[in-house]
Design a protein around this nucleic acid. Structure first.
Lengths: 187, 187, 187, 187
DNA sequence: GATGAATGAGCATTCATTCAT
DNA sequence: CATGAATGAATGCTCATTCAT
């Protein structure tokens, strides 16, 4: 495996466990077993290493989310599937999930082709279609997102923080159903 | 105002804005206009200063939450009121809300009389009463909390991070209603 | 003696002997016998330390030069005295002279009340008076300076570089006379 | 053009502009568009690269100086011509002039056939001839050099440092005449 | 109580140089 | 000959904390 990936992996773990500032570059370096210079040969500095760790996690997460939407024809399975996928991903990638839980690195939005913008556009588009057919409510994206994934997010955070031991996937059906209840058009 | 409070206030602002690790004790010191020694006269170290900032914010928040529950006789106004109060508090105390959003300081749970334990007991108790009468669903605290305040929390986080400008109080009714829908016993 | 002065002295020696970039802050620090932190308590960084060393040397030199001019009523003794004083100063303060020989630190001119501007004004003023009475030639400052102190400067540089052992004061009369010959009005 | 020369040229520019220590080998490498290894194929290390840059500049300068002396039969045109040539060369090769202005690389004198020794011998020889005929003064080489080229050197330094804009060639006649006045035998 | 000079472990980063391919 | 990945000693600087006054 290329050093670049090994470093990203090691950095991901340390960043998730201790936070970026508390992680010393030498921790990462030592884990992979390369020299200081090697790190700087692949990443210009700690900041950029963090950004790349973040972007990799974000892309990974969003790909799964998008897939969940695309796979489902009807609104309900889309909404519920997204919640389930979200919790499965968190359960399966606790480190990456922790990374995304922390405040995003500054300057990440200036990145060309910010994945967030694309993600926002895709999800909004999917939503508007079903909204158009009256299956789901007409909502601002912010509120929509809070109702849809807020419970799952909150549960994930608590679980990642070690507050409880029940795996997120165990509560997925419950949270998925609630999300659908909040978002479907009830008239 | 006593130096102790001035330091807590200044620390709160810096911790919220830049994070604990990125905040230098001298930033806080300079803002209050006190000497290095003075800080150490009132707080044994940075860690403890952070803990006290955190505890003050937590107590402040939880007091409001508890009051919201106590004030309401019926389950619905309690559930909805809590959501509204939550969003009002976040809107009115963005710095304290940001503090509580960050990972809690290690060792805070070892504190005697951890406010969290008390809070957990009070809220659980309130819930069990209404659960007993069949007005609300029988749920684990974790799931209950996620359904109840997850959307509000998620919205708050996004707003605190500057992702949107619509004040949390504006979406409070919407999120409150959704919470009630998720938690009431529908049979 | 205050640490500040001790550091300036030690820095002066090292900067003169090895140059600024080749001098490690720890060399200076170790010579004075203080901790890293102490250095940074008195100087914000290496750059500023260099600037202050430079300014001290410059002021010291220019004060002597100015005095030499003020003390002399007639042009000849002023011109010759300045050359002699210059060489005496170099001989007596080889380290400071070496500092002034190196390229000036960037950003030193932005300093309020740049000593150079004051010096230039004073010397020019002195010159214009004697020029007015026709004792000395009418010359641009640049050429004037080159003819006046160029030989002394060149000799000083070679001596400071260790190219010869004859003390600058030994050749002072010779170079002083030559300066006067080049600058006096011969008509 | 051979890589060796391209590297010398690039190095010369960077060394002159920023100084040797502040110049990174990779700056030079990048400008020429060569790999790290290529540099080390042609020069054993940075030190040697600097020495060769210096030697090339020195030889270039001294060749012109010697020529100026050889071309002139009488002492006066030799003395004045050397000053003029000096200033012309500085004006035409500011980078090389800047290199020679900086402290010489250590260990350059141990070089077999040090050009300096040869130069010193040649110039001294030329001088002794005219001294013998009584046209010029009997002077130690150090003083002789200071009187002869000190003003030109000083003016050059100031000009190279950017202190003024008047080209050295413009003041050449003036400085040349002054040099002759200082050096000719007046009896 | 208050002050601020002093400490020093610790960290990110640089850059000349080496060497396997 | 050429490449560029890898090395690692070295350096400037930060900042929580101590303690003499």
């Amino acid at each position: 495996m290329p050093i670049q990936s090994l470093l990203l992996d090691a950095a991901e773990g340390h960043f998730a466990r201790r936070g970026v500032l508390a992680t010393r570059l030498s921790d990462i370096r030592a884990e992979v077993g390369v020299s200081v210079g090697a790190v700087y040969h692949h990443f210009p500095n700690k900041e950029e290493l963090y950004i790349q760790v973040w972007l990799r996690a974000l892309t990974d997460y969003q790909d799964g989310f998008r897939t969940a939407l695309v796979e489902c024809a009807d609104a309900r399975s889309g909404v519920e599937g997204a919640v389930v996928r979200h919790l499965q991903w968190v359960s399966g990638h606790p480190q990456r999930a922790t990374i995304l839980t922390a405040p995003r690195p500054p300057g990440i939005d200036e990145r060309a082709d910010s994945p967030n913008a694309v993600f926002f556009r895709d999800v909004t588009h999917w939503w508007r279609v079903h909204e158009h057919y009256g299956t789901v409510r007409r909502l601002d994206f912010d509120v929509l997102y809070a109702l849809w994934l807020g419970p799952a997010q909150e549960y994930s955070r608590q679980w990642l923080a070690g507050a409880m031991t029940t795996d997120p996937t165990a509560v997925a059906p419950e949270l998925a159903r609630a999300a659908w209840n909040s978002l479907r058009n009830q008239e």
